[in-house]
């Protein structure tokens, strides 16, 4: 088993951190993991992305041409990476700031109001990346919830228990928003209702 993920968005949306959380969680459950960021001039323009691979076997290429799961946090990322989802793969769209819908029908597309949900759960949009992580985990459960929680603890340890708790709440809010959501439906109703 190898799971190849791409996370993309604006700089400041926490896309690199979201990728690191996935890699950390994979490591917590003793999988092999790699995290590779975009770097250099392409990130100076304000967009960022990273590739996260995890596997129960040694990982060869830490990059791929196509991905099992793609998370897009802004519209340019959707335009750029919709085509990079493997057929049958998962595309998660941050519908708080992406107003258009995905075009492909051979993949599972999910929508999450990540910014709005982050505002209501954490009081600001900064936690949108952890909301998205929860949402992806709900629709594509390839990691253990406890491992993701452990990753959040490691990542936010230096900020104290309050921040850890807030992020764990955001993770679960993202998961709950996707509960019983079928792919290719309009925005998650649970998220809308809040």
């Amino acid at each position: 088993m190898i799971e190849e993920n791409l996370i993309a968005g604006f700089g400041g949306q926490g896309v690199l951190s979201l990728g690191k959380l996935m890699a950390q969680a994979a490591m917590e459950q003793n999988l092999c993991a790699t995290w590779l960021p975009s770097y250099g001039p392409e990130m100076r323009g304000g967009t960022a992305n990273c590739v996260v691979c995890f596997s129960d076997d040694e990982i060869g290429a830490p990059v791929a041409a196509n991905y099992d799961a793609v998370v897009v946090m802004n519209q340019p990322s959707l335009e750029k990476f919709e085509s990079a989802v493997k057929p049958g793969g998962t595309l998660l769209i941050n519908s708080s700031i992406i107003s258009v819908r995905a075009k492909r029908s051979d993949i599972d597309v999910f929508y999450i109001d990540a910014n709005d949900l982050a505002e209501s759960v954490a009081g600001n949009a900064k936690a949108a990346n952890v909301i998205a992580l929860g949402a992806l985990h709900a629709v594509r459960p390839r990691l253990e919830t406890s491992a993701i929680e452990a990753a959040l603890k490691t990542a936010f340890e230096y900020k104290g228990q309050k921040v850890i708790d807030m992020n764990i709440r955001a993770l679960h809010a993202g998961m709950e928003a996707m509960q019983d959501t079928e792919p290719n439906q309009p925005q998650a109703t649970a998220a809308r209702a809040r």
Binding site: K20, C32, A33, T34, W35, L36, Y39, P62, V63
Partner: peptide, 10 residues
């Protein structure tokens, strides 16, 4: 190379 320099692994 750039990938080995930039990538993270356990």
């Amino acid at each position: 190379d750039g990938v080995l320099g930039q990538m993270m692994e356990p």
